[in-house]
Amino acid sequence: MGLLEVNNLVIDFPVLSMPNRSLKNRVLNAATGGYLAKSSKDRPVVRAVDQVSFSLKGGDRLGLVGHNGSGKTTLLRALSGAFEPSSGSLKACGRIVSLLDVSMGMDYEATGFENIFLRGIMMGLTRKEIEDKVDSISAFSELGDYLTMPIRTYSSGMVLRLAFAVSTSIQADILLMDEWLSVGDAQFNEKAAKRLNEMVEGASILVLATHSDALLKSVCNRVMTMEKGRVINHSLLTD
C-alpha cells in the first residue's frame, strides 16, 4: 500500500493582475482588438513546478530541499491533489494526509468540540469517523473543559494544540509535511513529537520539505533538491 508517481509535473500559476481579471477590459479588448487583445491572451504565468518526475513506494521518505520560492510548498500542495497539473500527471494510492496548514478550517467563534468536527471534515473524515475519535482527540489535547468554550478564548498555543491533536489523529498512507511541526510548551512538545514520530513511522510514504540538515538525516532516506521549480538533484541518503 502506498504509491506516489509524478510524471513531468508542471504547475503554472496565471498572474491575474487587475487588467485581465476585469470583465470591462475583456469587453473593451474585444472591441478594440489587435494589439491589446493579443497581450491579454499571453497572460504571464509563474511556473512554480517545472517538469518534476519521481516515483515513491512504500518505505520511501523523501526530503525536499531548496531555497525559498524553489517550489517545495507548491509541489506539496499539488501532491495533495488541490491543483490540477498544468501538464504532466500525478498518481497516488493510499490516504493522503497533508499537514501543511493544520489550523485550516478552524472557526474562532466555534467551540473546541465544534472545531474538532470542522477540522476533521477538512481532513476528509466523515462525521461518524470523527465521533469515534472525539474522546481520544480531546484527551490528547489536554484542553479539558476549555473544549466547550469558543476557541477565540484560547491562547495561540492552545489553538495549535487542538489543531495538532485533530490533524494527527488519522493514520496516513502518504504524509505531506512542511517542516517538522512543533507545538505547545516543552512538556506538550515532547508528547507531540512522539505522536508525530509514530505518524511518520506509520505512514508508508513521507514527503517533507525542510531547511534543516539534521532533520533530513534523521527522518529521510532520499533527498530531492529543487531550484526554480526544477529538480536539480535526486539521490538516496545513506548513513
Binding site: V10, G81, E84, P85, S86, S87, G88, S89, L90, K91, A92, C93, G94, R95, I96, G124, D173
Partner: peptide, 11 residues
C-alpha cells in the same frame, strides 16, 4: 475512491 488520486493533464 478518496484514497486514489489520478490526475493527468490529458484528462
Amino acid at each position: 475512491r478518496l484514497n486514489e488520486l489520478n490526475m493527468d493533464a490529458q484528462h
